[in-house]
Design a binder for these strands. Sequence first.
DNA 1: CGAGCTGTACGAGTTTGATCGTACTGCATG
DNA 2: CATGCAGTACGATCAAACTCGTACAGCTCG
Lengths: 125, 125
Amino acid sequence: MTTARPAPVFTVPPEPAGTPDPLPEPDVADLRLETVLGALSDPLRLRIVRRLLLESEAFDHPCGWFGLDRPKSSLTHHFKALREAGVTRQRQYGLERRSQVRVADLEARFPGLLALVADWTPASG
Amino acid sequence: MTTARPAPVFTVPPEPAGTPDPLPEPDVADLRLETVLGALSDPLRLRIVRRLLLESEAFDHPCGWFGLDRPKSSLTHHFKALREAGVTRQRQYGLERRSQVRVADLEARFPGLLALVADWTPASG
DNA sequence: CGAGCTGTACGAGTTTGATCGTACTGCATG
DNA sequence: CATGCAGTACGATCAAACTCGTACAGCTCG
């Protein structure tokens, strides 16, 4: 029995109707701790996930919403890494590809992990 | 807000007197989430930490105690990575160098993380 | 002291991943 | 249909890390 979860208060996506299908992603049962931890062991990706957790008043967010001064190809790389590890879900909205954290899935498999990410503070600030 | 944890019952080391000084390790305040997650994003190291957490009836354990069929130099590499990330503490007992998980330090900085490691199951078994 | 043991140091080979430029696809809007 | 935009794909480059063999250090015990 995994420890009973106190249900952290992250912004749970309301999932409105007429939503595009998610891009390919691992199933909840296939989430691997080592893979998820590997995806989160990068400051940039940690920053992305943390911002999604803390400032995600809307449903999900396009890549440009994060103020990351990196070339687009670098961002693609990191967002893809997060999605393939199962940390985020991405949907195509016309032009944009928006991301959200798979809060329910991650809490179910690795309870408490997202709280650590939310509490994280970058090294240079 | 870190979710209030139900205080997992790991074996807390009794710290007997006359213990050798620990090898160099990062201070609790210097523990970085991304570094710790990086150290734990490896199946072999995850297995090491998990065994230390679950079967650590004694105080700490030498490298040979784990049944890892890797060359010694590889094991040195991984144990050093864990210690330098702040996950484990190592002490020199005569011939042996014994390891323990820094349970109190990790729980203080990243509450709940060790519970995830304890719940982890290797991919091939 | 000399043998044997635990573990390290060092270095080479290999792999993985980060970074980023350039060229491209696909949608939208006029 | 032409322009512009969000994001991808591909490939090159570079840095880090894994793996492991060999040689060595340090302790212990006969």
